[in-house]
């Protein structure tokens, strides 16, 4: 798994498109649902974009603890799917929303905290992590 992060509007999508032109996209920005279990029997490259939006949706129905546990299972499911074949590849794009001013809204604070944990959990399982900064990538893992 390859995790791509960075601030909003930093060119993450463009960078991933250039590096994985064959990828099949699932985007929270296009209202695609979160795929918890990848059931696809095919060996392909999947790109999951806007995972921060899915997390926000989860928090409408779950507590923080439930959310974190649920998301750990999600990551485990992705990991399992990818490891079936070396021809399976999962690219996860998440916007970093964790470096700004503490949000006034409690829901935003929770969202931000859960994102911080989720990204840590993802990064541990990924063999490569890149931070995209205005179109330039910095490989921080792998």
């Amino acid at each position: 798994m390859h995790f791509v992060t960075g601030g909003a509007f930093n060119g993450k999508r463009k960078w991933v498109k250039e590096n994985y032109p064959e990828g099949e996209w699932f985007s929270a920005y296009n209202k695609d649902p979160l795929i918890m279990n990848l059931e696809s029997p095919w060996n392909s490259t999947f790109i999951l974009e806007g995972i921060e939006v899915w997390v926000k949706e989860l928090l409408a129905e779950m507590t923080m603890d439930e959310g974190r546990k649920y998301l750990k299972d999600v990551i485990a499911g992705w990991y399992k799917w990818e490891n079936v074949s070396p021809d399976r590849k999962l690219i996860i794009i998440g916007t970093d929303i964790t470096k700004g001013i503490v949000p006034i809204d409690k829901a935003d604070r929770n969202w931000r905290d859960l994102i911080g944990w989720f990204y840590q959990d993802i990064a541990i399982k990924c063999e490569r992590v890149d931070v995209v900064w205005y179109g330039l990538n910095q490989t921080v893992k792998g």
Binding site: A8, N10, Y134, G135, L136
Partner: peptide, 18 residues
């Protein structure tokens, strides 16, 4: 932010140094 990001990307892609 969208505009700022677009500008920064454009500038970084042409700049000698960032």
């Amino acid at each position: 932010c969208q505009l700022m990001g677009k500008l920064h990307q454009q500038i970084v892609s042409t700049a000698e140094n960032a």
